[in-house]
Amino acid sequence: MRADRRFNLAGLGVFAALLLLWELYSRAGGVESYLPPPSAALKALTEPNVARALFGHLAGTLGRFLGGYLLAAALAVAAGVVLGYSRFAYSVSEVIIELLRPMPSVAIIPVAILCLGIGDAMMIAVTIYAAAWPILLNTIDGVRNLDRTLVDTGRTFGLGRVKILWQVALPAAAPYIATGLRVSLPIALILVTTSEMVAGVNGLGFFILDEERSLRPANMYAGIVVVALLGYALNRLFVAVEARALAWKRGLQAKGEA
């Protein structure tokens, strides 16, 4: 890759040209009901009442996302370590996992509505269910691929089973867990927005669908801009946290290779 990657003039030019084309096309008239000019969406974004509403919906979506994603991470890593470490636990649950996994996770939404009603608990529950799979499977993989020497060394130094799990197995599986967490991030956002659309009373998913049904397309596009920014910001945040959390690993590998 070249050094001048930072500033992509051609790319920005194409992007601006597309926006301009859209602006001109929709200003020419006749398409306001579904394709307002991008400037109208931007204007909606800066209107105080729309901005205030959007901020509230953003807070709702973000809260549900964090609740579902973090709980999924905690539960799936814990379960994954146990299933990866204990052959018995794995063989008992393997068939059940293989049966549940191929079902598209959104199909769980109707069940969650039945059991938990309409509200935050339902949305967080479906987010946990969907986001847990990649984390669980990657954690199991990571712990199973654990270098036996590491475990034996830990045992030689008198570490108990629990300490070996915490201080040896978990750090060694960390890169796998990170992969699972990265895959789960967009999945969690998909599940939060979907459940807000299917059975929500607030949140960005609800807002976007509601503005579409109320025939305010400019507000709808403003909502999509916000949700895209949220997705982008969460991804950047994840990459930054991952780089810091796994920095020790990279240093170790570099030393090992040298």
Partner: peptide, 18 residues
């Protein structure tokens, strides 16, 4: 590149209303 990187973070379900 810029067009792709702008559209990619949009969670697909919110494209449904559009």
């Amino acid at each position: 590149e810029v067009v792709v990187e702008t559209l990619r973070p949009v969670p697909p379900p919110v494209v449904i209303p559009v």
